[in-house]
Design a binder for these strands. Structure first.
Lengths: 362, 362
DNA sequence: CTGAAAGCGCTAACAC
DNA sequence: GTGTTAGCGCTTTCAG
């Protein structure tokens, strides 16, 4: 437990001032001879600059924060791996928090990050504009990943927020939403960049695929924060959406199971289900089995997220794959490279991977 | 992007000295009237003490580091959730790193944590004593989780290290290993506390269960860092272990698959497999399917780790469940409560959950 | 090109 | 009880 050498030790041993050491080590200007001597001494003393001093001086902690709803959800595991890979190659620390999908815990974690002066954050958001305003007001560089916060428009209780869907819909630039009336108390959409999958295209492709198989009654099994996917589903299915076929879990595996089970029982006439995420897909498989529904004979299933175990199911699950790892990596790149400026959003492609969980409508 | 209030601002606004503010906020002594005034002003100014100043002053970053091999492995996701839950309730930050099971990356991450002055660390270790000595020498409080570093004894190339097995074998206190001869260059076992599952009992139970089903040729499909489980398997199987029935992947899903596939092909006479972790179990299921081996008709399978998708397989997988979340939570508790002292190790129970992947030996 | 010095925000002696 | 003060290790003006 010996104490580490400080910059002062190095300066003395090299016979130079601390400023010179600092310059040399951060690539500043110095005469070749000095530079060499300092480097030698630093190596000799096994000097590692302390992030503590630097952080205080710069009034900011390096690295980035990462907030995800649940690490036992394999997709978020992939996302996190991507972020960590990028951070590691940059030698930057990542402060991780798991929100459980709960805006309150999310707010607490944001507070913790603020206290740590972490000023760059990648988040799969659970709260709304109110939850996020402290971070934004503090000047944090925030990048959302995988989804955007719900926009609690008064007339849109389900959080479907069409404007939100329009905001990031793939290749076609979205038209600006109409200017809000002045003195409006309704929160405006957060102007935060995001790295998300092209949900609209992904869902559309899946729905068309199912349609092509002859399915008419297609259900959507959603989770919290999936307003973009639901909206895409509604759009893909077309005008008169059977509302009973759109159900939601609250995020836990139990509630996902309950939602799936309820769906199957209340509407035995449905012939296909699109699950909005892997936890929901898992629930659908379980519920179907419990109710003796055969996949794909009795019900076809498409799951959002490709995860290793999708192939283990029998039959293997047809999925809408989104690049979780890339998503994390890209987000980390953006947040690291943003020199304070606000990065641009990124939409990543999805891919329908056809395996065995969909069959023709009987 | 307004700048935050500092302790000085609060002191001035409350008409007291900075020390008093500091004391009040850290629960020190102060007269009721002062305390109240300071608290009021602090709330008023929305003052949040900056961790930066405190950290530098105390020459240590709060919170803890967490190093795991791979977050897409659901078990480590569970473990991480446990750590995060404990940290969150303590309001402490967690700096996360993913090592990919690679000692070099692990060493890099340890260096990064040292640079950040993170002095408490929970790790699923991949490297050996050499990898870990920097952390230990720097006075870090380290707790291993899930497994212990391999002890590269010269005459124990497989890393089986019986002493290691004896070190933590559940309820019975282990006998002290015989004193090492002096002048020995061989590294001694690391004296680092750990939170692990009772691998010995878990494996033993599984092997007995399979034996009870009539299986004679039982294979073990292991991964890196599983020396304790292999040793337990050898012990449970008894003296003449058929070495061809003990195979290893290197950690990646690909290599796990290759190992499983190779095993099934080279030894068609085996009738049961114990997979040392969920990634290995996944590989075993996939390889068996590819080779047209039916589970459990042709081969019985027990997998270490209970993960949600184990129930999705058909048949659902019989597993040795270990409490991943608890493991993480306990480790975090230990590392947070250790006031510098070295915590005691903890061994958590496992449970054999019988589902449908094991059948009688034909 | 280099060194001296001024803090960053906080805590912990130490005086009163 | 409370205020004053001295740094923690580093970066960054500002002179030389």
């Amino acid at each position: 437990m010996e104490k580490r050498a400080t910059i002062k030790d190095v300066a003395e041993a090299a016979g130079v001032g601390v400023a010179t050491v600092s310059r040399v080590l951060s690539g500043g200007s110095a005469s070749p001879s000095t530079r060499e001597r300092v480097l030698a001494v630093a190596a000799q003393l096994d000097y590692r600059p302390s992030a503590l001093g630097r952080n205080l001086r710069q009034r900011r902690t390096g690295g980035m924060g990462l907030l995800v709803p649940d690490l036992t959800d394999t997709f978020y595991g992939q996302l996190a791996e991507g972020v960590l890979a990028c951070a590691r190659s940059a030698g930057e620390p990542v402060v991780l928090g798991s929100t459980g999908g709960d805006p309150e815990q999310e707010a607490d974690l944001i507070g913790m990050l603020l206290e740590q002066s972490v000023d760059r954050l990648i988040a799969v958001p659970s709260g709304d504009a109110e939850t996020w305003s402290p971070a934004l007001r503090a000047g944090m560089t925030v990048i959302f990943a995988d989804r955007l916060p719900a926009q609690s428009l008064p007339d849109d209780p389900g959080g479907t927020a069409l404007a939100d869907l329009l905001l990031l819909d793939g290749l076609s630039p979205a038209p600006q939403p109409p200017p809000q009336p002045q003195f409006q108390t309704r929160p405006r959409p957060l102007d935060v960049p995001a790295v998300v999958a092209d949900d609209r295209a992904g869902i559309r492709t899946a729905v068309r695929y199912l349609r092509g198989l002859g399915h008419k009654r297609i259900a959507f099994l959603g989770g919290p924060g999936q307003h973009r996917r639901v909206a895409a589903f509604r759009e893909a299915v077309g005008a008169p959406v059977d509302e009973e076929l759109v159900v939601f879990g609250t995020g836990s595996r139990d509630s996902a199971y309950a939602a799936a089970s309820g769906l199957f029982q209340s509407r035995p006439d449905l012939s296909a289900v699109v699950a909005g995420g892997n936890v929901l897909g898992e629930a659908a498989v379980l519920a179907a089995r419990e109710l003796d529904l055969r996949v794909p004979k009795d019900v076809s299933l498409v799951m959002y997220d490709d995860v290793p175990w999708a192939e283990l199911c029998s039959p293997p699950l047809t999925v809408i794959a989104q690049p979780g790892r890339d998503m994390g990596y890209r987000a980390a790149e953006l947040v690291l490279r943003s020199g304070g400026r606000k990065p641009r959003s990124v939409v990543l492609p999805t891919e329908l991977i056809i395996r065995g969980s969909c069959g023709p409508h009987r």
